[in-house]
Computed example of a mutant assay.
Amino acid sequence: MTEPDQPKVHDLDARSLRGLAHPLRMRLLDALRFGGPATASQLAEKLGESSGATSYHLRQLAAHGFVEDDPERGKGRERWWKAAVQGLRFDDALLRDPSPDVRGAADLYLHEVATAQTQELSTWLGTRAEWSDAWNRSTDMSSFTLRLTPQLASELAHKMHELVDSYRDRTDVEDDPEASTVRVQSRTFPISTD
């Protein structure tokens, strides 16, 4: 059970993964998670899609529990949507599922996550002149190459997650005018040296 002040994390299973593993659905969910509630028309304009497409995919996301109606907004026929989850947890077992459909959805999901992260970094690089010198000095784009066992790689990733989590609920920055939402991306993967 999620505590009231803790973000709701959705554990992806075979059924929900098939409901999410679509490029537009993933973009819609991210738009609602990070941009707040919106209508299908607003999301269509923001994402450069038709409102018919966004409406259809929002209903699919709702059927799988990722988004929901926002009853506090909207008048008459205007339907507002909000994210029902703030985090997603991917189980690597989905990549070994007996069903080729599930494995394909898992592969698509991971590739879309990587694409979205690359686009976010590219956007930052393209707009960094709009940010203060303090923010430009505070960013990091590092790459480290280590020689590890699978167990050590897992331990390293876990420790990095713990460190990031220790910054998640800092209340001392809530009213700080220099504070901004920060994206921290982490990747740990083996490479071939042949």
Rank of each mutant, 00 (worst) to 15 (best):
T181Q: 15
D165P: 07
P98A: 03
V173W: 07
V102R: 00
L110A: 04
R128S: 06
E174P: 13
T118P: 10
A114Y: 12
T181M: 14
E120N: 13
H111P: 00
D165I: 03
T171S: 09
D176W: 12
L108D: 04
M160A: 11
N136E: 03
T139R: 14
R183L: 12
L110E: 02
S143P: 04
T118M: 13
G104F: 10
Q117S: 13
Q119H: 11
K159R: 14
A129F: 09
D101Q: 15
E155L: 02
R103F: 04
D176L: 02
V164M: 10
D165N: 10
Q119G: 11
V113K: 06
A179R: 08
R170W: 07
D169N: 13
R103A: 00
W135A: 12
A114H: 14
F144G: 07
D101F: 15
Q151K: 05
Q117G: 15
Q119L: 12
G104Y: 08
V182H: 13
A114T: 13
A153D: 01
S166A: 11
P177Q: 02
T139D: 12
L121N: 12
M141V: 05
A179V: 00
R103L: 01
S99C: 02
N136Y: 05
S142D: 12
R103E: 01
P177W: 01
T127D: 11
L110K: 02
A157Q: 12
L163M: 06
R137Y: 09
